[in-house]
Design a protein around this nucleic acid. Structure first.
Lengths: 138, 138
DNA sequence: TTCTAGTTGCAAATCATTTGCATTTAGTAT
DNA sequence: ATACTAAATGCAAATGATTTGCAACTAGAA
């Protein structure tokens, strides 16, 4: 299980102690195909307190290991903060797909040129919603 | 107060009865400069029950009169669903500014061309976050 | 004017997320 | 290795947004 060493290094580099809950959560996050809610992640941990999970996600987010994703749902989704991407979500069945192309630098330049109170854009949220091919056929 | 007739027409066209709370809420929404939380809107109503407010916002949303805006905060923001636009939010002070330019049709075409499970995009969420000029000067 | 489905308000429930605090532990200094 | 301290954990309880149940109340059609 070399993976564990990687996780320990990630935590160390982030200035976080390597604890059992953190390693477990990092492993789970690294295996996720899609962003997931705290409650869903919690079910996968078996033994990590939900409070610890929330605190862990918060510290991971602070250290930029994790980011929150908003999918127009009641609760927040989390995923590892690697390679910039966005999501297309099926509003029927919830299926998701990632996409990388967003070309936001170009767009934000144009927007900032017109904006009266902002020159300095740091982040953007972009998510698409539609009907996946499977649902469309029904 | 010709405005009230307009509001009644809006509600009628949407298939909603014209009630005192609804007219009051519609008026408040029409006067908002920025999206606002249910709790904030509630404070402005004086007399409308918070539950009624939530139900009204839900029915307005269902009839496309209102849309939810997610601003990376704990609660949901609402605004009238007129003229398509997005927001730039200052992560320091919360100041907001609208922008119209988003050119999403062009982008979604490109994205869909690459996507494996989606041909049909219906909506998009796009919000920018940065530091407003006033905060940047400090 | 009557009638009824749709609407409201209140109380109480729910659900996600957070806080307080006493106990435990990782990782450094001895 | 051992001792130490700040950081991390778990439990219970709190918080805050939003929802639900239900009885009383209208808007607006007949």
């Amino acid at each position: 299980m070399e993976q564990e060493k990687d996780f320990k290094k990630i935590l160390k580099d982030a200035g976080l102690k390597s604890t059992i809950p953190r390693l477990a959560i990092l492993k789970i996050l690294s295996e996720l195909k899609n962003p997931m809610t705290a409650q869903e992640i919690h079910k996968k941990t078996k033994g990590v307190d939900l409070v610890t999970l929330y605190r862990t996600l918060a510290s991971f987010e602070e250290k930029q290991l994790v980011k929150k994703v908003n999918l127009q749902k009641d609760s927040v989704y989390y995923e590892l903060n690697i390679d910039h991407h966005h999501h297309i979500v099926c509003t029927d069945c919830g299926t998701m797909e990632d996409f990388e192309l967003c070309d936001m630098d170009r767009l934000t330049k144009k927007i900032v040129a017109k904006a009266s109170n902002f020159k300095n854009i740091k982040e953007h949220v972009l998510e698409l919603f539609g009907i996946c091919n499977a649902c469309a056929k029904i």
